[in-house]
């Protein structure tokens, strides 16, 4: 087990390295410079600024400095919020985004798993069609449609929930729903397919044949095996939810990391956008790693 974890950790290194190199290349291939502001500056000022941001050094040296800074988890200073480090912006925004994302992921699992099981057990009957129809709707209605429509109904026409901002638990209700809808749908479909497959397997027939109760067969023999595809979906789901929160935070005016990302992108705040991309990239790679380890631990067929 330990050897497996170490092997996976080593495997993540090239991924992180490529992430860093790609982003660095992007920044340096881009036309123009972040110093091209609205006000023209004298050559001396420009030279001083370039020296401050180390833009006058050879590329390879900049790359080394960049890697070193990231290794120290130092993402630099924001261009847009003067004198504020990207680190402090991340520290301010991430807890909010994390709460939102974790709640959405939990909701997706709490709704999707039972719905998928229900559909599988009643395959090709009313409950199945209902659950599948619901999940197709969930996949087809994106969060930036569902979010504003919910605001229209629950905040504009009826004053039931706050339309935006962050003020008590009520303000999390609509964002979490908007963010989770698509993942409820995916988890339902996955869970249905895998449950149907497991229900048809030989060892389930054996379990039934030796006279175990339906309840015991389902929860002890079917469920753990059927959950495996959902576990391996957790990695992509977490990545998707983090990305989705970019839009959802924008809709509901939630001061999370996603909102910083969008305003940074619109204002060409290079360091901020870069910092958040790297931060999220590293989190996603780490989460995938964690999911792989959990999967290996759950599935007896995986050998280390």
């Amino acid at each position: 087990m330990m050897a497996y974890i170490v092997k996976r950790l080593l495997g993540a290194i090239p991924t992180i390295f490529i992430l860093l190199t790609l982003t660095f290349a992007l920044v340096h291939l881009a036309p123009g410079s972040p110093l091209d502001g609205d006000r023209p500056m004298t050559p001396e000022v420009r030279a001083n600024l370039e020296a401050k941001y180390h833009m006058n050094e050879p590329l390879i040296q900049q790359y080394r400095r960049y890697l070193l800074n990231i290794a120290h988890l130092d993402f630099g200073t924001s261009f847009q919020y003067k004198n504020t480090s990207v680190n402090s912006l991340i520290a301010a925004g991430f807890p909010v985004s994390l709460t939102l994302g974790a709640a959405a992921l939990a909701l997706a699992l709490a709704l999707g798993i039972p719905l998928g099981m229900l559909a599988a057990v009643h395959q090709n009957h009313t409950a199945d069609y209902g659950a599948m129809g619901l999940s197709l709707a969930g996949i087809s209605v994106p969060n930036f449609v569902l979010g504003p429509l919910m605001v229209l109904v629950f905040a504009v026409y009826n004053d039931w929930l706050p339309a935006g901002g962050l003020d008590g638990w009520q303000s999390y209700v609509m964002p979490v729903l908007a963010l989770a809808a698509m993942y409820v749908a995916y988890v339902t479909r996955l869970m249905r397919a895998s449950t149907i497959e497991v229900l048809r397997s030989n060892y389930i027939r054996t379990a039934r044949a030796k006279g175990l109760s339906g309840f015991r067969v389902f929860f002890v023999h079917v469920l753990p095996a059927a959950l495996l595809p959902v576990v391996s979906f957790l990695g992509p789901a977490a990545a998707g939810i983090l990305t989705g929160s970019v839009v959802v935070e924008q809709i509901f005016g939630i001061p999370g990391l996603g909102r910083f990302f969008v305003t940074g992108a619109l204002n060409r705040d290079y360091t901020l956008v870069l910092g958040i991309t790297l931060f999220y990239g590293i989190i996603i790679i780490g989460f995938n790693l964690l999911v792989d380890v959990i999967y290996g631990w759950l599935d007896p067929r995986v050998t280390y």
Binding site: P14, A239, T243, V246, A265, T277, I284
Partner: peptide
Amino acid sequence: DILYSLPFMFFVILLVVFFG
């Protein structure tokens, strides 16, 4: 596999920001 685990949505946004 490596490309798979990169947060691509963010990359596309970076691309759009840097290159117009």
